[in-house]
Nucleic acid binder design. Sequence first.
DNA 1: CAACAAAAGAGAGCATTGCTCTTGACTTAA
DNA 2: TTAAGTCAAGAGCAATGCTCTCTTTTGTTG
Lengths: 242, 242
Amino acid sequence: MPSATRPQAKAPTPRERARAQTIADIVRIGRQHLALHGAAALSLRAVARDLGVVSSAVYRYVENRDELLTLLLVDAYNELGDAVDAAVDALPEDDFAGRFHALGHAVRGWALREPACYALLFGSPVPGYKAPGEQTIVPGTRVVYRLVRNFDAAHRAGALAAPAGPAVVVPEKLARDLAAIRTGLGLEVPEDLVTRGVLIWTSLFGAVSFEVFGQYGADTFAARDELFAHQLGLLAGIIGLV
Amino acid sequence: MPSATRPQAKAPTPRERARAQTIADIVRIGRQHLALHGAAALSLRAVARDLGVVSSAVYRYVENRDELLTLLLVDAYNELGDAVDAAVDALPEDDFAGRFHALGHAVRGWALREPACYALLFGSPVPGYKAPGEQTIVPGTRVVYRLVRNFDAAHRAGALAAPAGPAVVVPEKLARDLAAIRTGLGLEVPEDLVTRGVLIWTSLFGAVSFEVFGQYGADTFAARDELFAHQLGLLAGIIGLV
DNA sequence: CAACAAAAGAGAGCATTGCTCTTGACTTAA
DNA sequence: TTAAGTCAAGAGCAATGCTCTCTTTTGTTG
């Protein structure tokens, strides 16, 4: 079957090319507005103005404000995921502790560089907006998967010291959740360490959120880099990563 | 000097009483709207409608939308602080671990009960809104002060086990910040444990935020109560609180 | 008790938003 | 060439925050 009969499959028509370019422009301008004025102030009319077009014309390309938010959400998730991947991949596979620190610093660095995007991903949910799972789940889980896979690899390599404190018993109901996670990701790390990994995950973003959202007082911590590095070290200790 | 000569000092005039009552009503209705539709959707016009008054009349009592947000912010901080105080004070002073767990569960319980208020306090900052420090600092620091004071009391009582891992060295720049905190609060706990307290603080709110803001997948964790309790236990271990 | 001044409410109005609808122009394919 | 599909423009609707003016209420005071 010649390609001319299915133009939308192989060769994009000029129309489709122009349309894709316009959508890309809308996302680009939307990101600028997001960074400048925050998610709640994201206005389709303002994007249309910057695009040099009347407001109603934008609705030819984007269903509504929520769809633009979804586009920006996926964009941001992937940018964060790319930053984390690049930082982690820069270190050797068996440098588990180094990779953990690299991941943490990559998250914090991106969050401080793009606070509005970070707020869109990890801040208060935008009221009335429900992220469509089919588009956001995969990019939204890149970081946490990378984190636990690193822990799992460290465990397989015998690089995780046994937890210091007394053996913590995991309640059965929680154990079922953890079992599903372990089989779903193919993890070998024991369930107690999975909970520690989850705690490290939430704690990492807790620390970053406090800094990005200004929960630390204006001048309580001058040495924020050092504070965060120190916190990462303490978190690594939770799971026995030296 | 009889009180009649200074009516505004001792006995509030009927006008002042009515005015205070109206402001209280505005805050009450504002809290309802906040809980129902979120902070970004908080509308002075809607509050005016519920108050049975035309929109411009509300501006007699509240300067603008930001001032109403500040009122709600202080209200929420104090409600959270009261909940935490009540939970902590219900346990004996020397039950340091119990008090820590009570504090954590009080924070989480209030956050799940009032997700919109929690988002206002600990979520993404409202764009274009800057909380006036002179009104929010004191109520905003109640929880963290309560937390570190509990750790300090445990340390004074010798109830903190020595940290398990190798002694972590605190960089000098960070040490200066910690010294300021210790003298400012009159803490005896050593600086290394202050950093652990800070990590526990941010981690606690990180865990709560993930749950309230829906960062956990829809069905990744069915046993959220158990997960949080487990996380609190791990956090207590960081500072050696058995 | 009545007059007055301050406070409060009402309502119109402006600029902004998201979004819909219709109309006309333009591009592409048959 | 013509018919179908696409796009931009503009008007319009219901909201919003906020300001202004005018009127009414209300507490105080001579």
